[in-house]
């Protein structure tokens, strides 16, 4: 796996507005934290009330964690250009997420960059909140 690091950015909470989720609030997510990681997709579940992406990602010591990151529902994700077919197991992607507060490898997706460079966001500018996109992985890797 090409994973080199996991970058944790603190204090960006004011700059990044959390994605809007249709059903549940954000009380479980640490809105001050953002993880950016190279990931290998293991499963993509296209379901209500939320879709979720399962993937493996290694930290800088090479320890692989099995992550689960939710998105909004299929209707919202379709509006954002996602689909049931957008990931398949084994795909190498870069995931930016907000983790939950309890330290479990669970979060919600802010964006995914596919192997071909395409960026999939979780917001619709002008529709789902202000037109603020998550910073690109290249910008946030320090």
């Amino acid at each position: 796996m090409k994973t080199k690091h996991i970058v944790v950015l603190l204090g960006l909470g004011l700059l990044i507005t959390a994605p809007l989720f249709a059903h549940h609030g954000n009380s479980n997510f640490d809105i001050d934290k953002k993880l950016n990681m190279k990931a290998t997709v293991t499963e993509w579940v296209w379901a209500n009330p939320h879709c979720w992406l399962k993937f493996d990602a290694a930290d800088d010591k090479g320890n692989v964690a099995h992550w689960i990151a939710e998105t909004s529902n299929p209707a919202d994700m379709t509006n954002l250009g996602w689909s049931r077919q957008v990931f398949k197991p084994g795909d190498h992607v870069t995931v930016t997420l907000q983790p939950v507060k309890n330290g479990a490898p669970i979060g919600r997706v802010m964006q995914v960059v596919l192997a071909n460079g395409q960026t999939l966001g979780t917001r619709i500018p002008g529709v789902f909140g202000p037109e603020v996109d998550a910073p690109k992985p290249a910008d946030s890797s320090k």
Binding site: A47, N48, P49, W52, I68, P74, T78, N102, I106
Partner: peptide, 24 residues
């Protein structure tokens, strides 16, 4: 117009996989 259906099996899977581990 699309389907947007709450399927009990999917909701249960979401609860087990995401919601419960996130709150433990």
């Amino acid at each position: 117009i699309r389907e947007m259906i709450c399927a009990p099996s999917e909701a249960e899977e979401y609860k087990k996989t995401v919601a419960e581990p996130a709150t433990r």
